[in-house]
Amino acid sequence: MKVFALIAVIITGAALIYSTFEMPDWGDAGSPANTHVSPRYIESSIKETATPNIVTSVLADYRGYDTLGETTVIFTAGMVCILLLRSKKDD
């Protein structure tokens, strides 16, 4: 069983390493991830939101729906922990 797991892991890792030959180099400023939307965030953050920390302005302003969903996920996790585990003392 552990041999099959090891074989599956090695095959998956080899496929992933093969795929990295097509990836942009580490720290490449011209890679697609660094040129698609982030220059707009960097340029217009202080003009549009008056917030120098771009991470905060993207987190709370440009992607507000996303953060609302994440907060709801955290809230649901807390409620699930209470529902699963909490029991009264004299039960």
Binding site: E48, T49, A50, T56, A60, D61
Partner: peptide
Amino acid sequence: AVKARAMGT
């Protein structure tokens, strides 16, 4: 209006 965005944040 611009500062209001920072306040909402």
